[in-house]
Design a protein around this nucleic acid. Structure first.
Length: 113
DNA sequence: CATATGACGACAA
DNA sequence: ATTGTCGCCATAT
């Protein structure tokens, strides 16, 4: 779904979001699996930060042995996200749209004065 | 229209 | 921490 892709693209670098979270924001209540479906079927040349989407538990959704797992993990680490044993501290990296808006917008305003 | 499928999530053992 | 169940929901058959 287009809506889902848009939402995923809003996740800032260095932060992550859960499938369920994306679904909610995209307006699909309890549509976590739809997010998975959407990400799985991304067009060829997409530019969607799919790697910033992880399970609500903070674990990467791929099999820890498969190649995809490592790819996602690396991408995250590159962005500064700590991933130990395939686990991510959600309390620390969870993306909070509302908070970001409350934090980043005013910040730019403060710079002026 | 009936089933089967997941890059899920919450919860009980 | 692990594992199994069940609920969810857009798509695919």
């Amino acid at each position: 779904m287009q809506r889902i892709r848009e939402t995923v693209c809003e996740i800032p670098k260095g932060r992550v979001a859960s499938y369920g979270q994306i679904a909610e924001i995209a307006g699909i209540h309890r549509g976590a699996r739809q997010v998975g479906y959407t990400l799985r079927h991304l067009p060829k040349g997409h530019a969607v930060p799919w790697h910033r989407v992880v399970q609500s538990s903070g674990r990467i959704a791929f099999d820890k042995n498969g190649p995809q797992f490592e790819r996602q993990q690396n991408r995250l680490i590159i962005e500064g996200v700590t991933v130990s044993a395939g686990r991510i501290d959600m309390n620390r990296y969870r993306w909070q749209p509302d908070l970001d808006e409350l934090l980043w917008k005013p910040t730019s305003a403060w710079d002026e004065s």
